[in-house]
Computed example of a mutant assay.
Amino acid sequence: MTDATGGRAPFDAVLCDVDNVIRTFDPAPLAALERAAGVAEGTTAKIAFAEETGLPALLGRITPQEWVASIAAGLSGLCEDDTAAWELGSALLESPFHADDAVVGLLRRARIRVPLVLVSNATLGLEADLDSMGLDDLADHVVNSARVGLVKPDPRILELAAGLAGTVPERCLFVDDTPENVAAATALGMRAVHYTGPGDLEEALRPLFG
């Protein structure tokens, strides 16, 4: 593949995380419910993403609704009643979100030159969420952990994404906000970027844009 100057591109594909990179969540509604229920802020997320609760959802073994039930069960005893626990679980699942326009713009520019694959630890609802943000056409492929039965930082999900892009891991740029996932990509030989803001992505893509 060639870059903007006609030479070989610095990488043959971009593999990009979704949550906290492309998509940003608004935690305020859930936090307000936690305060009203007398639960410490962040407790719902801590229970939701604990391995025993979150992994089945991220592997596609349970539906998002079944995940809410698991979260509510984990909150049992911390809330005054089961209704409040269900409300907190539902609020986490339904947290408002929006796409980062700066990130989306950079990725659309990159995709003109090389394939773009989204690689996300997500539930079975990811594809519908992308559609709701108008991003169903953003990438060439979406590798959703709940669809493929693999979660980052398992290197197999990264190898799968590289294969779908038609290249090898060593020729991929990988962007993710989680250090463990970045480390796994680096171990495979990918050019890995720990994302903290749009500037990180812009800097990583600059060689591609020439």
Results as ranks from 00 to 15, higher is better:
residue 42 G to L: 12
residue 43 T to N: 09
residue 43 T to V: 04
residue 43 T to E: 14
residue 43 T to C: 03
residue 46 K to Q: 04
residue 46 K to I: 04
residue 48 A to H: 01
residue 48 A to K: 03
residue 50 A to W: 06
residue 54 G to R: 04
residue 54 G to L: 02
residue 55 L to K: 13
residue 55 L to S: 14
residue 55 L to H: 14
residue 57 A to R: 10
residue 58 L to P: 06
residue 60 G to Y: 09
residue 60 G to Q: 08
residue 63 T to Y: 06
residue 64 P to G: 15
residue 65 Q to S: 11
residue 67 W to T: 05
residue 68 V to S: 06
residue 68 V to D: 08
residue 68 V to L: 07
residue 69 A to D: 15
residue 72 A to T: 03
residue 72 A to Q: 06
residue 73 A to F: 05
residue 73 A to E: 08
residue 74 G to I: 00
residue 75 L to H: 00
residue 76 S to C: 07
residue 76 S to H: 04
residue 77 G to I: 06
residue 78 L to I: 07
residue 79 C to T: 01
residue 80 E to T: 04
residue 80 E to L: 06
residue 80 E to W: 05
residue 83 T to L: 14
residue 84 A to Q: 13
residue 85 A to H: 01
residue 86 W to D: 12
residue 87 E to Q: 15
residue 87 E to K: 12
residue 87 E to S: 11
residue 89 G to F: 04
residue 90 S to N: 12
residue 91 A to M: 04
residue 91 A to C: 09
residue 92 L to D: 02
residue 92 L to R: 01
residue 93 L to V: 12
residue 93 L to Q: 15
residue 93 L to F: 11
residue 96 P to R: 10
residue 97 F to K: 13
residue 98 H to S: 15
residue 99 A to R: 00
residue 101 D to C: 08
residue 102 A to V: 15
residue 103 V to Y: 01
residue 104 V to R: 08
residue 107 L to F: 00
residue 107 L to D: 03
residue 109 R to E: 15
residue 109 R to D: 14
residue 109 R to M: 13
residue 110 A to E: 03
residue 112 I to Q: 15
residue 112 I to F: 15
residue 113 R to H: 11
residue 115 P to Y: 10
residue 118 L to P: 10
